[in-house]
Design a binder for these strands. Structure first.
Lengths: 159, 159
DNA sequence: GGTGAAACTTCTAATAA
DNA sequence: TTATTAGAAGTTTCACC
């Protein structure tokens, strides 16, 4: 993970790919007035450097029947159990992301479920993990994802 | 957004694309023993139906100098201001996702910042929004993302 | 629905600058 | 480092199952 300095061309390439990973390199090349070979080399370099960790689809989970989102704060009996509990939590597929946090909770995670009934099952799974003392749930009534592009622009414009 | 029934082939296609959106359709076709044309048509159909909302790169934000993650709970003076405040919050590029929630907070969001100093600025931006009464921050010491594939498998295996 | 092949487009690696 | 190039590979359409 060597420190890697991105230049303006790299930013522009990421800028096009972050919205649509299947944009042809020839399109990127045309827009940036460079060759497709250069785009290819640069993307490869960013992949090798680990800046680009991968690519993924954005699916409509609502349409797949998963419209329930909640955050679950987890209290542990002992802080030393954090790693163990985190691992168990990450085994639950309905947990999309988990954190070790400062503040009142030891672990904090986001879950995605079908409905309240299903969410209850998921929360009980968490409650049942050895070392978990108590959980506190916060239900999302509406989620708004912010465009990754905007964060990227902020990052680039100050580098 | 017509109800759209995915079959086993669709699942397999998504399964391959979710890990790497640039997998050639010919590779998918080979693996599923169907023609590349079929893969193409099916992906297009899922895009048209909105199941596939898009594709995006996974970047290493740590390497880009953004290693700070926190969740910020927002208390409002009046619940009626929720929509307005949510919009203002979403204008901040360092906010990656925001929710309207039940429970103690009115709005709950995730932020990504360079460091504690920068996070302070971001939190102050939120505090400064008209209608925001108070915020409460929870700092992530460690984040572990769960594999999307696992949620997808759970979704598919029960449909 | 799906196929297979044709026509077209894109990728990639080697070479040259 | 970047550009060019050419052969390999991938995409997309379409006539036909």
């Amino acid at each position: 993970m060597a420190k890697f300095k991105l230049d303006e061309i790299d930013h522009q390439i990421l800028d096009m790919l972050i919205d649509n990973t299947r944009v042809p390199f020839t399109d990127i090349a045309k827009k940036l007035v460079i060759s497709a070979g250069t785009v290819h080399v640069r993307v490869k370099k960013m992949e090798d450097a680990g800046i680009i960790k991968g690519s993924s689809l954005t699916l409509d989970y609502k349409q797949l029947g998963y419209s329930f989102i909640a955050y679950v704060g987890v209290f542990l009996q002992k802080t030393s159990q954090t790693k163990f509990v985190l691992e168990r939590i990450n085994e639950i597929p309905y947990v999309t992301v988990a954190h070790i946090t400062t503040g009142k909770f030891n672990v904090f995670c986001k879950i995605r479920a079908k409905n309240t009934e299903h969410a209850k099952d998921v929360i009980f799974m968490i409650d049942d993990i050895e070392g978990v003392y108590r959980t506190e749930t916060m239900i999302s009534l509406e989620e708004s994802l912010n465009d990754k592009k905007r964060l990227m622009h902020s990052i680039f414009n100050e580098m």
